[in-house]
Write a protein that binds this DNA or RNA. Sequence first.
DNA 1: GTATACAGGGGGAAAAATCCCCTTTTTACA
DNA 2: TGTAAAAAGGGGATTTTTCCCCCTGTATAC
Lengths: 222, 222
Amino acid sequence: MKNASKKINIALVDDHNLFRKGLIKLINMGDTQQKYHILFEAENGNDLKEKMMQPPFPDIILMDIDMPDMDGYEAVDWLQRTHPTVKVLVVSMVESDNAILRMLRMGVKGYLSKDIEVEDMNRALEAIASNGFYYSEIATEVLNQNLMGNIKPNPASLYLSENEREFLKLATTEMTYQQIADKMNLSPKTIDGYREALFQKLNVKTRVTMAMYAVKHGIVQL
Amino acid sequence: MKNASKKINIALVDDHNLFRKGLIKLINMGDTQQKYHILFEAENGNDLKEKMMQPPFPDIILMDIDMPDMDGYEAVDWLQRTHPTVKVLVVSMVESDNAILRMLRMGVKGYLSKDIEVEDMNRALEAIASNGFYYSEIATEVLNQNLMGNIKPNPASLYLSENEREFLKLATTEMTYQQIADKMNLSPKTIDGYREALFQKLNVKTRVTMAMYAVKHGIVQL
DNA sequence: GTATACAGGGGGAAAAATCCCCTTTTTACA
DNA sequence: TGTAAAAAGGGGATTTTTCCCCCTGTATAC
């Protein structure tokens, strides 16, 4: 039972080649029983989609979040719809509550910060390979804090309307809300409504952090 | 002459443990002649400063840019003043003209994107070890474009003081200026002074666009 | 038919950000 | 060692942002 016939196939999705290559070395180093096989690497979500067109499929995907073209959120979303049996382990430097909760809600099996020790990554792989879960410390904290009392987190509301998206872009510029309202031919009060809706959805408290969110998630380009 | 008696000491400065560990494996893999020795690792500039208190000193330092506490710019600046013979190879995911030029002006020996191939990194190490330079493609482009005709970039005014940089980072968060003042143990009026100075230097008109600048130029991490 | 959701809009007030002009303290360095 | 910048701090005012509670159509679901 221990020495199963087939190896566990792993895929890596991360936009930094150097990080992928290093990670592969680390996985192989810790893999004394030769359980794992690196099936493929992808640079972003789109790349992953291509490589998931036909078998063989990976058992576990190590997934970054911030990537050009198609980020980790979209990629995981797509995976859940098209390959629901594939297990995702997020390996990201993003440590915000929002990111962690969003990923966990989508059903990823693990969440690792890039800060963690090599041993933790191997533990995470072990856990996930044997149908478990593994969250690094920070993710566990977030999970605990948000499970009690906080029933509010809105699963679907992460969707932004056309207007909200447009407003969000303009909110990253020098324009005042008044000027944005003029440009969008809407009342400043409506704009204020968008602002409040976005603060809620994006879990931010100021225009500055709202703008930061927009950059982080590729809604505006640098 | 080929087999010099002493190994080349390398230090790594990057806030992501996983990346450091992977990088070390990659360096050792490509180091068939066992020329390199990993002297130490540091998580950020401050950590580096501590480890540079006494010998042995590294010959080459692989330096990230975005790091908490003390970032790559500050660290390189400090190194140039205190250990001018140490050669710095920047390994960052920041690819903005500004970041590259700034580092090159400070005299780093190489600039690598984290996207590069493993071989490029080994080439860079080779080059720098033998008193050369190595810039990855993107850095070379930037260099070429900015050497001809473009004398305009304001060299002095781009300099941000320690405090200004700290303030700029905090200004990208939810904190109010009052809270930033408290955190930095300064009067809100002084903070307001930093704000005005930065608006001027960065050519922006609002806190939002100031924050955008900070992101664009890699002063804060995403 | 009636509840429900949601985009658009409004009043009004408190908090934060922005601006301009000015004084004191520190620091650099010729 | 004197002096001129920087850096730090202040007064006071305007503009913008942020918040909270409310109203109206108009779909859509049940």
